[in-house]
Structures are given as C-alpha cells and as structure tokens.
Design a protein around this nucleic acid. Sequence first.
DNA 1: ATTCATTTGAAACATTGTTTCATTTGATTG
DNA 2: CAATCAAATGAAACAATGTTTCAAATGAAT
Lengths: 139, 139
Amino acid sequence: MTASDILDHHQVKKTTPRVALIQAMQEARVPLSENEIKERMGELYDRATFYRSVQTLSSAGIIHRIVADNVMVKYALNNCENGHHHQVDHAHFFCRQCHHLYCLKSIKVQTLDLPSGFVDEEHDLVIRGICDQCNSQLK
Amino acid sequence: MTASDILDHHQVKKTTPRVALIQAMQEARVPLSENEIKERMGELYDRATFYRSVQTLSSAGIIHRIVADNVMVKYALNNCENGHHHQVDHAHFFCRQCHHLYCLKSIKVQTLDLPSGFVDEEHDLVIRGICDQCNSQLK
DNA sequence: ATTCATTTGAAACATTGTTTCATTTGATTG
DNA sequence: CAATCAAATGAAACAATGTTTCAAATGAAT
Ligand SMILES: [Mn+2]
Ligand SMILES: [Mn+2]
Ligand SMILES: [Zn+2]
Ligand SMILES: [Zn+2]
C-alpha cells in the first residue's frame, strides 16, 4: 500500500509532510527515531509538524510509538506488509551503544489485566543494555 | 535503615546531597520524579549533582530508575523495608493525567530470555494511560 | 475557480539531561 | 586532632527533545 492509500484508508487528510513521513518509515523497515526520520525526509522535515503528525497518525492507528528510553522514542508503522509490526505484542531491546532498537519477536508481551478503571493507551516492554554486535566489538 | 547506613553498607561515600536524596525517597514510599525529589530536597538540590547521584546510587544497587515515558523518569529505592520495591519484577502504570506511577504488583514481568550476546542492564514493563481516579473525576 | 476549515512552518519557549572547571568536602593517615 | 588529596559538588554554559503561538499556505469539497 502506498502512503497515500494508507492515509485515504484511515480517512486522514493527505498532506505532503504526512506522505513523506510514512514513506520514510516504509523504506526503513525498522523503527526509526525522530532524527533518523529527519535525515530521510530532508527539507520536508519540520520539528513542529513532525510532532503533530506522529500524534495524528498514532491516533488514527497508522503508526505507534515505542519509548526506547527517556531520551529516545522510536516510531514504527502498524500492520506493515514488510512483515514488521502488527501491534506492540513483543518486547524490544534498546542498545545504549549503537541506539538500535531490536524487535524481540520471541518475547511476547503477556495479556495485561489491569485493575478496573485503568485504561491502557500504550505500553512497552523495553530492555536496555548492550547488543550482541556492540558486545563483540568491545573485545 | 537510615540513609547513612545504606551508604555505608554499599560502600558509597556519605555526602550531604546523597543522604538528602535517599531520605526524600524513604519518606515518599512511592517512586518519585526529579521534580518531586527537588521539592523534597529544598536547597540541598542541585541539578548536576542530582544526575550524578542517581547514576552512582543506581550502579551501587541502592536505587533504580523506571522510565515512565519519554519525558518522565521515576526513581525508587531497592529493597525498601517500607514494603515497596525489591527489584523491578512487576509492571508499572503511568497516568498521563496526574503523572502518578502505580506499582502493579499483580502483573509480574516474565523471565526475559534474551538472544545470546544481549545484556539486560535495565528493563521496564510500562503501561501508559488514564488511572481509575482520574477516570472517575472526568465524569 | 472559490471557499474555509485544517494544516503548516517559523520562532520563541519549556524541560530534561550533560559537560566543564574551579571550589569544597569527607575519608584516611600520621 | 590536623594535614592530605582524591572524590564530589555547584554554578554555568550547552545540547536535545518537545510544546505553543500565530500568520500564511493548502487541500478537500462545493
Ligand atoms: Mn517491534
Ligand atoms: Mn514498583
Ligand atoms: Zn548495539
Ligand atoms: Zn491519574
């Protein structure tokens, strides 16, 4: 599906920055940080527009946020036909050295039975540390 | 145990800001944000010292960080005799309205079997949304 | 083509976190 | 109890992330 189709399908107004944002994420196939998206968007990137877009696209169910740590959020498409995310049903590993966010599909997030009155809008099971590649380079 | 005893026990140098930080957390009995700690420390608080202290005390195993979301980290004592945390073996709920961080002791974090080469330094299972109290006030 | 609500982009602002470096402090030794 | 000195502190400048405001641009619908 093209970025344009996705916006149509979710009934979200089709604008140049939104199309460019979705395309950047489609080409990457892994969760991207704001900065990684900025590099891919080039002059189509604007900070304020970016934050408004991720808000709009998250609400529409087109993308989701993954809070990698307190100073880095990554963004990924939902239901990406690249075989990436459906929703966030798996854990993520954030490497503090290389800042890559790994999808750990083998670690599933259990069903979360919240006390009544609590509403889950977003959740993450995030593990932070050093990844295998960075570990082997340290030797 | 007094703050002073805890520092001795972990062989961490006893300084005025560190003692004040630990005391603030002991009195609170719930995970606190930097700002909540700042209020409790009064004039003993300094930004740079605070960040260095949480780094030192985390490494020593006296406290731990919980990444509530991308713009809020909460801090809690380990093995607090108040009956609070042992380690982070349970999920947390962060209310986006009132910014309270709830310990969900009923939701245990499963054992995390990482692929070889990956090292877990810190992990969080965090659910973000609206808490029961804020929900009932909205009606 | 015209309309008009929505969206954009620039700028100023707020908050969180880091770095630098001169000064202070607290554990140790005599 | 001094004297010592590595470790820690605090002030300031800096960097990164995220929000708000508002005039100008734009895109969906008529
Ligand atoms: Mn994933
Ligand atoms: Mn807890
Ligand atoms: Zn890595
Ligand atoms: Zn609440």
